[in-house]
Write a protein that binds this DNA or RNA. Structure first.
Length: 102
DNA sequence: AACATGACGGACA
DNA sequence: GTGTCCGCCATGT
């Protein structure tokens, strides 16, 4: 496994409840600014093995990036249960909920 | 090795 | 705001 992948997992694990981070942001924090797509890949492989708050990850527009299927619904409910306001189109106010790690 | 894929992002019309 | 195009980079076939 690439060290970057491990970093991504750590970053995601550190997102506080009630906050979100974007794919690109996670990629930057993990050390590879343009690896947003690898973050996506990590989420895919991790959702099966690791216990991570993947639902706190949204795209740069502050929206849920999944098709309106089961996973989408799961993410929506998870976010709302943490107190995050999610628009009907899956939009979130990043200025209000985005988390910036130190 | 070549080509396709993806829960992305930024630039531009 | 919407749609198109192109860059990114690990994986899968």
């Amino acid at each position: 496994m690439q060290p970057f992948t491990q970093n991504v997992i750590n970053v995601i694990r550190n997102i506080p409840e009630g906050r979100v981070m974007t794919y690109g942001q996670i990629a930057r924090v993990a050390g590879s600014p343009r690896a947003a797509r690898q973050v996506v890949r990590v989420l895919h492989s991790m959702s099966k093995k690791h216990h991570l708050p993947w639902h706190r990850v949204v795209n740069s527009k502050g929206q849920i990036s999944i098709k309106e299927d089961d996973s989408y619904h799961e993410q929506l409910l998870s976010l709302e249960s943490e107190g995050i306001e999610v628009g009907k189109d899956g939009s979130i106010d990043l200025g209000k909920y985005q988390y910036f790690p130190e």
